[in-house]
Write a protein that binds this DNA or RNA. Structure first.
Length: 874
RNA sequence: GCGGGCGUGGCGGAAUUGGCAGACGCGCCGGACUCAAAAUCCGGUUCUGGUGACAGAGUGUCGGUUCGACCCCGACCGCCCGCACCA
């Protein structure tokens, strides 16, 4: 009986050194096994790792260790998403340089990750803020520019006049900049774009092939891309407005054309501006529309408002119908053509609009079961199926037939010498604007020359490196006001010119790092095509759901662009995707209000439930909701503290137990203590096993006594289940199977303790002990090495091949079948595995309990589901 | 508003995808060891009734399909997430 406690502190460091010395996690190209690329989303070096990282990387490490044991050549790298705003914020607040701050954070966090004992090939580490990384990004930008994948165009942006920078939509809160609080302006700015919309169709249709992605993520991407099939349709004006004779609209409901009651133009539509030139009231209305717009809250509550331009349009299918043209606040300029026709009966927005202005509506689709003569629309538009009414030659058609009919008629009808309509597929997806007016990002490698225009930086001059002597005491982009950096001669004509001072969106950095890892030291290219095709796609990618759209969509686009650039030979970078849940924690309300951190609180469990008091003065503490760990709620737990108290193995084990990995997991003190107790239990169990186990290398017996076979069976059953569940990333179930095996082994050990066990049992303990250690080595690699040694090994369990499953052990010669009477379980019966149905039936009906439950009623039906259950119907 | 997901003991969750509901863990209760506590070990723990064997109820609610439903179908209730004037 071992009484020593396992001490994680010294042992974990010891084994980390041993792994490093043996260099076993370095990926070797000459490895004979099939490749397996496991990747977790690389972290932003914010300062310290948090529990979310622990969970994410613990999961990836299980997969990496498992695949390695299965003989795969595993690539499991790590790097840093190192550019971005927080470094500049820190520079402003703490007067440290973004580079200093970032590299210091990287050093800290690398140390923290290493203390987790992850099986990472650190020789491939990259940081996106390093010129060795971003020089290739600049080279690719120039390639993409040459191949027409990049565009420079004006676009309307949220401009913060205090911080002198562009804000993303989510950084605008109630019309104000999230940091400065300044009223955000809408500005036209010339910006760089990746033409992702050119790939909209492909990015959409290829989602079908991503079978190992969560359906949820594919759906989110599909909605974001927003493919729709419709018709571009031109309306003639009854009288030209200046030189404008027609209005083009986009519609997905050409079937409802006879229900059209108005045409609405976006406030920014050129024709609206033209009409406003001679109409100051309209001009004022347009101005008021522009001022709204930015705030999300305003959009939610905005009423439908409009202004009649006085123009009339001719109905394309009946020249006698005139349709009024309005300017409306709910029409978007940058989708479709910036103009729509409104069919109020079948579109809620249009209905709200006509109800506000008394324009009326005509229903043209009648739901099944409704009488067309009495079907009216008042406040709720009908957008369901039905048959056409009030639509002349369309009457009685289905919606899709009517769409086709209108489409073909108008495509064949000429207006001003051209077909009046044509089919068009539209997307919500816009081009990806990558210009940021920031310092801490990858410089965009172009030079603006007054004579030559936009000139690429010559390849020989790459990388364009960020200047180090910058200041953050003033708002705006430090690159812009740097005295010398931007001033360079034009590479073409040699005259004085100016560098682009915008830097790239940090999503660009993370759109290809997974490819860089395959060839991280390559100085000539971002990645060599040979290495890329050896390793890509990533077989399993693991990260947070918050990246479901942007990061993953941009990476899919970027991979296509790199494909076109000849760097990679595939379009989809991530064959398998898994999105893990968050780490959440209880919140604690202090006696004086505000929040207390878990460290300040003592939890008490009693029959009446949980209660909490403050550690310092025993004051009562309110236990609040379980929420995402955040500084503001003070419900964070520091991984360093957990690791120094309990060890990395305990932290990893707890992060993987209980909750399914895609769901949120609640961090609790009781839970982590339970995990720590199990670490100790495994340590004792392994030591006790080692005392009884047969010598190293002893083969188990195929026909031992009953106890030995039970031990063997339990081990192989656990092996089979853990194998199946780790393949499906169901780590919580793996944990349960390991508990079960250790329960069985503990019980069997307890029975034999005082005797000398027979050889067959000693051999079974040897086998089962090794299987147990190998199973938990995926989650608790340090403890596993220590236990492996206790079992007599002098090599590393991290290098051991996965145990061979003995299927024969799992096959029982007899099975126990539950017996149901009318669907209620009444008894069970143990029979030979291959017993004939008639025999089972005879035995079942002979059972005493069955006879009692039947109460003499006649058996109507006798159902045997082989290997499963018996149901007697009376 | 649109789209998606989820509701199982005191808690996290499991149920081989239509076949013994509650595996495993946490918590709790009882016992052993101890002068005592911690640690550890053993037993119990869905609810109701019964000392007990056992009986009844039970997977958000109501209904349906089925020999059999946590699982499939319909309606409703509640919670969570995503998108949001995209014509």
């Amino acid at each position: 009986m071992t009484t020593d406690r396992y001490e994680p502190q010294g042992n974990e460091a010891k084994w980390q050194k041993a792994w490093a010395r043996a260099d076993i996690y370095r990926t070797r190209d000459e490895h004979p096994g099939p490749k397996y690329y496991i990747l977790e989303m690389f972290p932003y070096p914010s300062g310290r790792i948090h529990m979310g990282h622990v969970r994410n990387y613990a999961m990836g490490d299980v997969v990496a260790r498992y695949r390695r044991a299965r003989g795969y050549n595993v690539l499991h790298p790590m790097g840093w998403d190192a550019f971005g705003m927080p470094a500049e914020n820190a520079a402003m607040q703490q007067k440290t340089h973004p580079a200093t701050w970032t590299w210091a954070n990287i050093a800290t966090m690398r140390g923290q990750l290493q203390s987790m004992g992850l099986s990472i090939d650190w020789s491939r580490e990259v940081a996106t803020c390093s010129p060795a990384y971003y020089r290739h990004q600049q080279a690719m930008f120039l390639d993409f520019l040459a191949k027409g994948l990049v565009d420079r165009k004006k676009s309307r942006v949220n401009w913060d006049p205090v911080d002198h920078t562009v804000l993303a939509n989510e950084q605008v809160i109630d019309g104000r900049g999230w940091r400065s609080g300044a009223l955000v302006e809408s500005r036209d700015l010339t910006q760089w774009f990746f033409k992702i919309s050119d790939y909209a169709e492909d990015l959409n249709s290829a989602l079908d092939g991503l079978e190992r992605w969560p359906e949820k993520v594919r759906l989110m991407q599909r909605n974001w891309i927003g493919r729709s099939e419709g018709l571009l349709l031109r309306f003639a004006l009854t009288a030209p407005q200046g030189h404008v004779k027609e209005i083009e609209v986009y519609t997905t409901r050409p079937d409802t054309l006879f229900g059209a009651k108005f045409i609405a133009l976006a406030a920014d539509h050129p024709l609206a501006a033209q009409c406003a030139a001679g109409n100051s009231e309209l001009a004022a209305f347009i101005e008021s529309c522009r001022q709204m717009g930015t705030s999300v809250a305003a959009l939610e509550t905005a009423e439908k408002r409009g202004f009649d331009t006085g123009l009339k349009a001719v109905h394309p299918l009946d020249p006698n119908i005139e349709i009024p043209v309005w300017v409306a606040n709910f029409v978007l300029m940058d989708y479709g053509t910036g103009a729509v026709f409104g069919c109020p009966a079948h579109d809620q927005r249009d209905l709200d609009f006509v109800n506000a202005y008394g324009l009326g509506n005509i229903p043209v689709v009648c739901p099944e079961g409704q009488d067309p003569a009495s079907f009216v629309i008042t406040t709720k538009a009908y957008d369901g199926d039905g048959l056409m009414i009030n639509s002349r030659f369309l009457d009685g058609m289905t919606i899709s037939a009517a769409k086709a009919e209108v489409s073909s008629r108008l495509s064949g009808q000429l207006l001003d010498g051209r077909p009046q309509a044509r089919a068009q597929v539209n997307f919500k997806l816009r081009d990806w604007g990558i210009s940021r007016q920031r310092y801490w990002g990858c410089p965009i490698p172009v030079i603006h020359c007054e004579a030559c225009g936009t000139v690429p930086v010559p390849r020989a001059d790459l990388p364009v490196v960020l200047p180090e002597d910058v200041t953050f005491d003033k708002p705006g982009n430090p690159l812009d006001r740097h005295p010398t950096w931007a001033h360079v001669p034009c590479p073409q004509c040699g005259k004085a010119a100016r560098r682009e001072t915008d830097t790239m969106d940090t999503f660009v950095d993370s759109s290809w790092y997974f490819a860089r890892f395959t060839d991280a030291a390559n100085e000539q290219q971002p990645v060599s095509p040979a290495m890329a095709s050896k390793w890509l796609p990533v077989d399993q990618y693991i990260g947070g759901i918050e990246h479901a759209i942007l990061h993953l969509l941009y990476s899919r686009y970027f991979t296509r662009a790199m494909h076109r650039d000849g760097l990679v030979a595939l379009d989809e970078p991530f064959a398998g995707l898994f999105t893990q849940g968050m780490v959440v924690h209880e919140t604690y309300g202090g006696p004086e209000g505000g929040w207390l951190s878990p460290a300040e609180v003592v939890i008490e469990n009693g029959p009446g439930g949980r209660s909490a008091r403050r550690r310092s003065d025993n004051a009562a503490v309110r236990i609040g909701a379980i929420e995402k760990m955040s500084k503001s709620r003070r419900n964070t737990v520091d991984p360093d503290e957990i690791i120094s108290t309990y060890g990395a193995d305990t932290a990893r084990w707890f992060m993987l137990s209980d909750s399914p990995p895609e769901r949120d997991v609640a961090w609790t003190e009781e839970g982590v203590q339970g995990a720590f107790r199990f670490v100790q239990r495994l340590w004792r169990l392994t030591n006790d096993l080692a005392g009884f186990a047969a010598p190293l290398g002893t083969a188990p017996l195929a026909d031992g006594d009953e106890t030995s076979m039970a031990v063997r069976k339990a081990a192989h059953q656990a092996l089979a289940r853990v194998t199946a569940d780790v393949e499906r990333l169901r780590f919580n179930r793996c944990v349960a199977h390991i508990y079960e095996l250790s329960n069985v082994l503990g019980a069997e050990l307890g029975k034999v303790e005082s005797e000398t066990p027979p050889d067959s049992l000693r051999a079974a303990f040897r086998e089962a002990g090794e299987i147990l250690v190998q199973l938990f080595a995926l989650m608790m690699p340090h403890l596993a090495e220590e236990c492996w040694q206790v079992l007599g090994h002098d090599d590393l369990v991290a290098m051991a091949p996965w145990p061979q499953l003995q299927e024969a052990l799992l096959e029982e010669s007899t099975i126990t079948l539950p017996i149901q009477i009318n669907g209620k379980r009444r008894d069970e019966i143990t029979v030979a595995r291959d017993m004939a149905a008639a025999e089972i039936e005879r035995l079942t009906l002979a059972q005493e309990k069955v006879q009692r439950a039947l109460e003499g009623r006649a058996v109507r039906k006798f159902i045997i589901v082989p290997q499963r259950i018996i149901n007697v119907v009376v």
